[in-house]
Amino acid sequence: MIEAPTPDDLQQIALSLVHARQAIVDVLHAELDGSKRNLDLIQRALDSGVIDAEAEYTIHALGIAFGKVFVNAEPDYDWWMIDDEYGRDPAVRYLQSSLTFHPQDMLIKRIERGEKVDVTELYEGLRSQLQEIIEGGVDCA
């Protein structure tokens, strides 16, 4: 089920963003600002070797920061919650449609598979793929 975030959900997203910000400060002595510039900072932090592949919470938090960049840069997307058999997780949703993605999982899944993550390529590929789906027709409530 897709639901609007509750105040508690928004607090959890905010805490993830604070954690991501602190990780970037600790590793790179730089600040996240929600702009596309953050994609490079996330990439540099992941490439630094300081953030271990086992640091799931930090990598999830960097995924939320990735999602914030997307929401800030791409019109018609916003934070929603997906409540399903796996739990309640933040997602980025296109308008009032069922077109969603889970940014907190996008980095960790690739890292767990041993893939080299190219954050900018991931962003552009996602943006392009979503645009193709939208152009093909998305049902909005």
Rank of each mutant, 00 (worst) to 15 (best):
137 G>E: 14
27 V>M: 02
93 R>E: 00
102 H>D: 02
108 I>S: 01
76 D>F: 13
74 E>I: 08
12 Q>S: 15
100 T>H: 00
71 V>T: 05
137 G>K: 14
13 I>F: 02
70 F>P: 12
85 E>D: 01
84 D>M: 00
50 V>P: 02
44 R>Q: 10
118 D>G: 12
71 V>R: 06
39 L>C: 11
138 V>T: 06
127 R>T: 08
60 H>R: 14
84 D>E: 01
111 I>S: 00
7 P>N: 04
117 V>E: 03
110 R>D: 06
41 L>F: 06
49 G>L: 15
123 Y>E: 11
24 I>T: 09
133 I>W: 07
43 Q>T: 06
21 R>M: 08
20 A>Y: 01
19 H>N: 15
66 F>N: 08
127 R>K: 14
133 I>K: 08
32 L>M: 11
80 W>P: 01
59 I>Y: 09
104 Q>A: 05
136 G>H: 04
126 L>M: 13
30 A>Q: 15
60 H>N: 14
100 T>I: 00
100 T>V: 02
139 D>N: 13
61 A>K: 08
79 W>K: 00
1 M>E: 10
6 T>K: 06
105 D>Y: 08
76 D>E: 11
125 G>M: 08
90 P>R: 00
20 A>W: 01
8 D>S: 15
79 W>C: 00
10 L>S: 09
133 I>E: 15
105 D>C: 09
121 E>G: 11
91 A>R: 02
73 A>H: 06
112 E>A: 05
1 M>D: 12
96 Q>T: 15
108 I>V: 08
134 I>H: 06
6 T>V: 01
94 Y>F: 10
67 G>P: 12
81 M>W: 00
49 G>N: 13
122 L>P: 02
65 A>D: 05
126 L>Y: 06
27 V>C: 04
29 H>V: 10
26 D>K: 12
88 R>I: 00
42 I>H: 02
120 T>S: 13
14 A>P: 01
45 A>F: 05
8 D>H: 15
7 P>C: 07
42 I>A: 02
128 S>Q: 09
69 V>E: 10
140 C>A: 15
91 A>C: 04
48 S>F: 07
10 L>D: 09
23 A>Q: 14
48 S>I: 13
39 L>R: 11
131 Q>I: 06
62 L>W: 05
130 L>Q: 01
37 R>F: 06
84 D>L: 02
136 G>Q: 04
27 V>D: 03
23 A>F: 06
47 D>E: 11
116 K>M: 04
132 E>C: 07
37 R>D: 03
39 L>A: 05
89 D>P: 00
15 L>N: 15
2 I>H: 14
56 E>W: 07
15 L>Y: 13
42 I>M: 02
117 V>A: 13
94 Y>V: 12
6 T>S: 11
118 D>T: 13
47 D>Y: 11
71 V>G: 05
